[in-house]
Design a protein around this nucleic acid. Structure first.
Lengths: 161, 161
DNA sequence: AGTCTATCGACAACGTGGTTGACTATCTAG
DNA sequence: CTAGATAGTCAACCACGTTGTCGATAGACT
């Protein structure tokens, strides 16, 4: 810290970069026939794939309650990206599966994110782009272990613990 | 993208790194006598400094409504980090000022963030740390202009537009 | 002065998206 | 067969944003 950037710049930069990428992605998704999709949908769809998941499983993967996961699934179902189907092997479970439209969304997102990554890799240079990702992975570690996804957490940012 | 990392890794990495830093910071803040403070408080306090601000100004700086800003100010006041005082020159305005405790929080946060930055700079090397920040700044740009703060936006991430 | 308009801060109502709790149905171990 | 764990759903609640409205004040214009 005896040198240049003050420490508080880093989290700002990370957040801004995250928002820039996600906003860019969803602008293009909207343009490409997926106007209603929100960031959380992509995360959830990713967490469902590839074998499907139940609401409780999805909740665990996303770090939220099964009730919250169920609401997200409701939204995905309403938007046509997922369907619930009963599990013949277990009467309690309802397997959530990604629809073809959901698969299309994920594949399109992957292509767009590759394109976005390609854009800044072109600006930065391939070598620095790769190193940026590697260094970010280092940053993302805490206590040696990778920080779990935890997109969630109402009030994580907000006014109360 | 003909090479290594798939594009979808990048936003994940950015988000995880952001959370890792912020969680680290607030763990230490809690240990150092600021247990109740949340990320949003630091952002707001920063936005108030150095000359103070009214609720409406703060809302504009943070990209939220003045009512939402007022609620944040309520929290800051309750926690002892800010005070509202009437403006003798303008009967409508109530100037929000950072208390000594608030200044202490900001200075401590700055020191801790410098320390956190120093930690990973030590792991990465000074040169790469500096370049990481520079490259992140490039990433954070959209349409040439820096992405505004916009910590806010209920449902930006969530289920509806 | 008087009036029009913009702004401040506050109050209320509402919406979204998370939470916990309770309940039933079903699976599984003993 | 029974006990306990677990799936999903319903209901209540809470946090944190929103918009709408309102009275008070400031400033400009007649």
């Amino acid at each position: 810290m005896a040198d240049d950037a003050p420490g508080f710049a880093l989290p700002l930069l990370l957040l801004q970069a995250f928002r820039a990428i996600v906003d860019d992605l969803h602008e293009e998704l909207a343009r490409a026939g997926h106007p209603g999709v929100r960031p959380v949908h992509g995360f959830a769809l990713q967490a469902i794939r590839p074998q499907g998941a139940t609401a409780a499983e999805l909740g665990r993967r996303l770090g939220v309650s099964k009730q919250a996961a169920a609401k997200t699934i409701d939204a995905l179902e309403r938007l046509g990206y997922a369907v619930r189907r009963g599990d013949p092997a277990d009467g309690r479970r309802k397997l959530v599966c990604v629809t073809p439209r959901g698969v299309d969304l994920l594949e399109l997102s992957a292509r767009l994110l590759d394109r976005i990554r390609g854009d800044w890799a072109a600006r930065l240079g391939q070598e620095r782009a790769t190193r940026l990702e590697r260094d970010l992975a280092t940053l993302a570690e805490r206590d040696g272990a990778a920080h779990a996804l935890r997109v969630d957490a109402p009030g994580w940012f907000g006014h109360h613990e």
